[in-house]
Amino acid sequence: MRCFIIIITLFTFYNSMIAQNEAFQTHVNILQLDELKNKIFESREPYKIVFIFNQFCSASRDVFPELDELYKKAHKENFELFVVTNTKEKNKEELEDHLFYYGYGEPFYILKDKPLLGFLKKTIQSICESCNANEMGYSSFMVFNENNEVLEQTNYNQTKEEIISTLKKYIQ
């Protein structure tokens, strides 16, 4: 019995050492909008969260640290997160540096066919036809269920606390 406890303790210690020393990696994917939509709608997770991000927007910079904290603590068993950024493909390295600086390991998506104008409205409408894109801004998000029905759509009038409280329901 004592031997078993020692083995378990050593195993736990070893695992925690590995986790502490694991090299951090960012996850930035580049794809077409249609490919992203397929990825979202083919996901079998109960909740699919599509978060709209802009590296230089104060609202995104304000909300994202708390989203990141939730994401890091989450078991990640019943949701999939898609962070769609307005970053241009040629600025991928700049985005990666930003994510590395803050230690953001969430999956980010850069659109190869990012529209020249109206990224926010066009992208949101393309992903969610029933959503009111006019009410949404950077740091807004949509949640779909496994049947791809819209469960939540946040808007720019909501406070940070309201946004985080909604995220908490799904990021577990």
Binding site: E22, A23, F24, Y101, G103
Partner: peptide
């Protein structure tokens, strides 16, 4: 915390 955190990540990255 940001400064120290990012430098630790750099160390872990080699």
């Amino acid at each position: 915390n940001e400064w120290y955190g990012v430098l630790l990540r750099q160390k872990r990255a080699g």
